[in-house]
Nucleic acid binder design. Sequence first.
DNA 1: TTTTTTGCAAAACCTTTGCAGTTGG
DNA 2: CCAACTGCAAAGGTTTTGCAAAAAA
Lengths: 152, 152
Amino acid sequence: MTTARRHPTLAVRDIDGAVEAVREAGGRLTRPRRAVLEALFATDEPVSAEQIAAGLDGRLTPTDLTSAYRNLEWLEDLGVVRHVHVGHGPGLYALAGERAREYLVCERCARVTAIDAAELARARAAIRTTTGFEAHFDHFPIHGLCAACAAR
Amino acid sequence: MTTARRHPTLAVRDIDGAVEAVREAGGRLTRPRRAVLEALFATDEPVSAEQIAAGLDGRLTPTDLTSAYRNLEWLEDLGVVRHVHVGHGPGLYALAGERAREYLVCERCARVTAIDAAELARARAAIRTTTGFEAHFDHFPIHGLCAACAAR
DNA sequence: TTTTTTGCAAAACCTTTGCAGTTGG
DNA sequence: CCAACTGCAAAGGTTTTGCAAAAAA
């Protein structure tokens, strides 16, 4: 789970697309590998390596935790997976190609809000203008006060 | 090192100001407590608990790591200290009252840029308008590509 | 068959906790 | 004196590493 170095996003629509990407990269489609991919396709929000290894809390085939971590890293290098840090807990993994999402975390009520990356276009433009940075919020979310908590 | 819950900033200009704040809070000025404060005043960038305990790599009186953590947490509750997460390493601590700084981390070259919080006013305004969030970037920095890395 | 990948155990890393002993006020 | 705090040791939570065994191609 590295911070620097970013992998080009490799969008895959379904398991078959992911399998193709794995093959194309010269990787093998092992059981844990498939299990990790199936878990990621079975959820619509970022999940921890532990949840993935547990088969999304029992709904899917469980896998060894170490294998989950290794495959998540491998798939992240491939560009198929990415991970985000929400708070101080474990990193949360998701498919990189999913409709680009970015996260907002309220530091008071701890609520996590996911929004479409497009919604932050103006903010990104402002950051680009004043700092030269091309910012994104899908790895470290935006922290602050949500509307409700800010109103007090 | 909690994420939710935010402590009101208590700006102190120097060690004496910090000592006064400690006293006012009914706290004792112990040796480790003073050592932590001295370390924070002796550096102009966020430092890890380990660096603080090591007396900023030998330049200051070393302290027990656990005491450093406990005092940092205590001082953070007081509002005198805050911490920021830059990448995947340990949390980095700084005086909360220092000229408000916010951080930008390049995910390619890993360079960390500190800027005055005021510079991000327009970005914050854009985020407020589109999401209702009152954002700040002194706990989780802004991630993205710096100008140099984005240019390629 | 050959190379990749697994599964387990163990370590690494950062941070917190328990507790008997020390110390600041 | 006595509550606040320390220092050590030990545990906790997350992630990585080593290595012999298993399995994909």
